[in-house]
Design a protein around this nucleic acid. Structure first.
Length: 481
RNA sequence: GCCAGCGUAGCUCAGUGGUAGAGCAGUGUCUUCAUAAGGCAUUUGUCGCAGGUCCGAUCCCUGCCGCUGGCACCA
């Protein structure tokens, strides 16, 4: 069997519809997955729904909808988004799936418990009845009240919970990261995690009382008064989706994950807690974590209160999936936050997609359609073209999508120059044929290499330039005014 | 507050101890195969501020100003 490649995107919180941040992550994950599929690797791309958080229950109550129905509906919105973006997810694992996810999470719990890493401890904290959550003193206002419910006194609530011996794994996790057995990209995120690991780790609570969890979530095995704390089971979706606890053979084929694609806000959970759970359970930690930044919109943080949350579906309907994919991959540096503005989006669209790629294809297709006896060879494989472009390969492998695309657009520029120099419109007969033949292979190469990034466009061009007769097609990216 | 990083052309950013670069936008020009697209040429910068090291610093050091991120049970 071919080499396997297992990649995940973070499972979104399904208490609200998706925004462009989710879209960015899906596109990045899909691009990496497509790259590996094109290399001939057996590839699985997974995401799912983070459904067991209390906030989902609260959001459902607010909407006046049963919890299961609420999260199912939101889940569909996320899955529709992935399809609209042209992302190929192989597995969509829901946290509320009692057939697969529940037994998988209980199995993980049992394994950690068997190692002796789970113990009971009483937890005392300030509880806000309005928010249904605990607060630390520094999270409260001067009156010692939470900001959501001023005037309401917090209660001191004491509760027995299960704790996980995170402290025990401190050194092992440092070793994993320093040795590169668990790689974290980009470097700045790795440094952040390591600096966090310089302080002593504190054991974390991994369960809640049924009452506090509103009877929602995965029951703790052997204790029907408690539910698992959402992170313990949420991270385990990466395993439950591929057979853990219900199909060991399938699980062993895919685990460990080759990459977890995540946003910067949850790097600790993935780089510290998750490997610790797995080590405790005697399972392999993931091989790498790729951390992307967040979006700002017109330079400002995205937030519901500011009302600047961007709906990716609207953008796709307006400009097409590949245009949005291109913007994400070209404009957002992998190591930093990116900004979204429609002005910039249009600028990039016109400059690169309409005037650049689209126009080059249009001019060559027109010339080719008017030329006799052109030779259209069979395009080579992705592998073969990749071997010819080692710099490009390195860019993709390092998740420098922006640089990889910059590299391709350098080729487009070169071809535009070549058209001007060869002046095919001044030629006839064999001279014309030769001039046009010159461009066929490079276009096959470009479109093949673009397949992971803008698959629909890439395949359209590749098809157009693989037929024996090349004919002009309507513009793929009509220029925006 | 502590730790890390950043501050370079209108915009997004690259870069090096030796008289500053790319793309986009702008301007001029050539061309017509093309989505009023393309080629060529070209303007702009006290390389955050102030000191220091050095023959020489945008790149090294110090201080200051500004911005961003991380600082645990919070997705």
């Amino acid at each position: 069997m071919n080499k396997k490649f297992y990649i995940t995107c973070a499972i979104p919180y399904v208490n609200a519809p998706p925004h462009i941040g989710h879209a960015l992550e899906f596109v990045q994950g899909d691009t990496i997955a497509r790259f590996h599929r094109l290399l001939g690797e057996q590839t699985t791309l997974l995401s799912g729904g983070d459904e067991n958080a209390l906030k989902n229950v609260q959001a459902a109550e607010k909407a006046g909808v049963p919890v299961q129905q609420f999260i199912d509906e939101n889940n569909i919105k996320f899955q529709e988004l992935t399809k609209a973006l042209g992302c190929q997810f192989d597995v969509w694992q829901k946290g509320s799936d009692t057939a697969h996810h529940f037994p998988a999470s209980q199995k993980l719990w049992d394994l950690c418990d068997k190692t002796g890493d789970i113990y009971k401890k009483s937890y005392e904290g300030l509880y806000c009845v309005g928010c249904e959550t605990f607060y630390e003193p520094e999270e409260l206002n001067e009156q010692g009240e939470c900001f959501e419910h001023p005037g309401k006194k917090l209660e001191v609530v004491k509760e027995e919970n299960y704790f996980f011996r995170l402290s025990k794994y401190q050194q092992q996790i440092i070793d994993l990261i320093v040795s590169g057995k668990l790689t974290i990209t980009p470097e700045t995120r790795k440094n952040e995690v390591l600096s966090f690991l310089k302080q002593p780790l504190i054991d974390i609570s991994i369960s809640r009382s049924n009452e506090r969890a509103k009877n929602w979530g995965v029951p703790v095995p052997g204790d029907d008064t408690q539910r698992m704390y959402v992170w313990f089971d949420a991270l385990n979706i990466y395993q439950s989706g591929i057979g853990f606890g219900w199909d060991e053979q399938q699980y062993n084929t895919w685990w460990p994950a080759d990459v977890h694609v995540i946003g910067k806000g949850i790097s600790r959970f993935h780089a510290v807690y998750w490997p610790a759970f797995l080590l405790s359970a005697g399972l392999k930690p993931p091989k790498s974590i790729f951390v992307h930044g967040y979006f700002t919109v017109n330079g400002q943080k995205m937030s519901k209160t500011l009302g600047n949350v961007i709906d990716p579906i609207e953008l796709i309907n307006k400009y097409g999936a590949d245009a949005l994919r291109y913007y994400f991959l070209r404009e957002i540096p992998p190591s930093a936050d990116g900004d979204f503005s429609e002005r910039r989006f249009k600028e990039l669209y016109n400059a690169d997609l309409a005037n650049g790629l689209g126009n080059l294809i249009a001019r060559i297709a027109k010339l080719a359609s008017q030329t006799e006896n052109i030779i259209v060879p069979q395009p080579q494989t992705f592998d073969a073209y990749l071997a010819l472009n080692p710099t490009f390969k390195i860019y993709i492998e390092n998740y420098q999508f922006n640089d990889a695309l910059g590299y391709i657009w350098g080729k487009i520029k070169t071809l535009d120059i070549a058209v001007n120099e060869k002046k095919p419109w001044e030629k006839t007969g064999n001279e014309l044929t030769d001039a046009i033949n010159f461009f066929i292979v490079p276009i096959q190469e470009i479109s093949t290499l673009l397949q992971p990034f803008i698959p629909e466009t890439a395949n359209k061009i590749l098809t157009q330039f693989s037929r024996q007769t090349i004919t002009p097609e309507p513009p793929m990216f009509p220029r925006l005014t």
